[in-house]
Simulated scan of single mutants.
Amino acid sequence: MGMSVIISAADAEDAEQILKLQYLGYQAEAELYGDWSIDPLTQSLESLRAELAEQRFLVARLGDEVVGTVRGRVDGDGIGRIGRLVVHPRMQRHGLGGRLLDALERRLVEDGRPLTAYRLFTGHRSLGNLRLYARQGYRQAGVEQVTSRLSVVHLEKPVSSPFAATA
């Protein structure tokens, strides 16, 4: 009998597993852009623990193992800022990224703060990420050239919930 993946809120004890998963998950991104100095690969455990205290973190667990994670927060303008969606390479392409994103969007709405849209970003060469976000209802809101090798694609999705703030 197989185990099910359970999505739940992360806690302080998950910090090391999240950091290791983040490091593993962002290897492909680093290779794609030829840059191993990207933030997810250089973040310290202390920095991640500080983020855990400030943001909403979700983890996907397979038994005791963290196999997926995403984080987010609602800023002062009512925008849900979503970041660092990571799924273990062996668990990719089975819908877990979409499940994590849906769960975080729901949690941000349930937090009760006025919320009008979700925003996230990814690199322009990250075609799998761009396809996932498009399937989840995100649309391109802009492109920012960071270096000669990297442009960041900003994506946005309106909040469609009775709890969402009205503009």
Results as ranks from 00 to 15, higher is better:
residue 106 R to T: 12
residue 117 A to V: 10
residue 156 E to P: 01
residue 35 D to G: 03
residue 55 Q to G: 04
residue 89 P to S: 04
residue 163 F to H: 08
residue 166 T to Y: 11
residue 20 K to S: 15
residue 43 Q to M: 14
residue 154 H to I: 11
residue 19 L to C: 12
residue 88 H to S: 14
residue 4 S to K: 12
residue 46 E to K: 12
residue 82 I to F: 02
residue 140 Q to Y: 01
residue 134 A to I: 08
residue 80 G to P: 00
residue 6 I to P: 00
residue 16 E to V: 11
residue 153 V to C: 06
residue 155 L to I: 08
residue 160 S to A: 13
residue 144 E to R: 13
residue 152 V to M: 13
residue 91 M to L: 10
residue 138 Y to H: 02
residue 155 L to E: 03
residue 9 A to T: 08
residue 159 V to P: 00
residue 144 E to G: 01
residue 61 R to N: 06
residue 85 L to P: 00
residue 15 A to M: 09
residue 29 E to V: 15
residue 11 D to N: 15
residue 55 Q to D: 14
residue 77 D to E: 13
residue 125 R to V: 02
residue 163 F to L: 15
residue 13 E to G: 14
residue 122 T to N: 01
residue 74 V to H: 01
residue 52 L to F: 15
residue 71 R to Y: 05
residue 139 R to T: 10
residue 47 S to D: 13
residue 58 L to P: 02
residue 44 S to T: 15
residue 129 N to H: 10
residue 63 G to I: 06
residue 167 A to F: 02
residue 166 T to F: 11
residue 7 I to P: 01
residue 96 L to C: 11
residue 6 I to G: 00
residue 18 I to R: 00
residue 119 R to V: 14
residue 14 D to S: 07
residue 7 I to R: 03
residue 49 R to E: 14
residue 122 T to M: 03
residue 100 L to H: 05
residue 82 I to S: 05
residue 115 L to F: 02
residue 35 D to T: 07
residue 25 G to F: 08
residue 75 D to M: 05
residue 157 K to M: 02
residue 39 D to E: 14
residue 93 R to E: 13
residue 143 V to W: 02
residue 71 R to Q: 11
residue 68 G to C: 05
residue 110 E to P: 04
residue 86 V to A: 10
residue 19 L to Y: 05
residue 119 R to T: 11
residue 10 A to H: 02
residue 135 R to A: 13
residue 126 S to L: 08
residue 164 A to E: 09
residue 73 R to S: 11
residue 110 E to Y: 12
residue 165 A to P: 04
residue 19 L to A: 13
residue 71 R to E: 07
residue 159 V to Q: 01
residue 158 P to R: 12
residue 142 G to D: 08
residue 103 A to C: 07
residue 153 V to P: 03
residue 99 R to A: 15
residue 129 N to R: 06
residue 13 E to F: 10
residue 104 L to T: 08
residue 49 R to P: 02
residue 152 V to K: 15
residue 96 L to F: 09
residue 70 V to R: 00
residue 36 W to M: 12
residue 52 L to M: 15
residue 38 I to C: 05
residue 42 T to V: 13
residue 146 V to K: 15
residue 111 D to F: 04
residue 89 P to E: 02
residue 103 A to M: 05
residue 120 L to I: 06
residue 66 V to Y: 04
residue 103 A to H: 04
residue 137 G to T: 07
residue 31 E to N: 12
residue 128 G to D: 13
residue 93 R to P: 01
residue 49 R to N: 11
residue 155 L to C: 09
residue 14 D to K: 05
residue 127 L to C: 06
residue 77 D to G: 14
residue 125 R to K: 15
residue 126 S to H: 14
residue 161 S to K: 07
residue 123 G to T: 07
residue 67 V to Y: 01
residue 52 L to T: 05
residue 58 L to G: 03
residue 116 T to N: 09
residue 111 D to K: 03
residue 101 L to T: 06
residue 15 A to L: 08
residue 121 F to W: 14
residue 49 R to M: 09
residue 23 Y to S: 09
residue 95 G to R: 12
residue 155 L to W: 04
residue 68 G to M: 05
residue 26 Y to C: 00
residue 86 V to G: 01
residue 66 V to W: 00
residue 11 D to G: 15
residue 103 A to T: 12
residue 121 F to V: 08
residue 163 F to V: 04
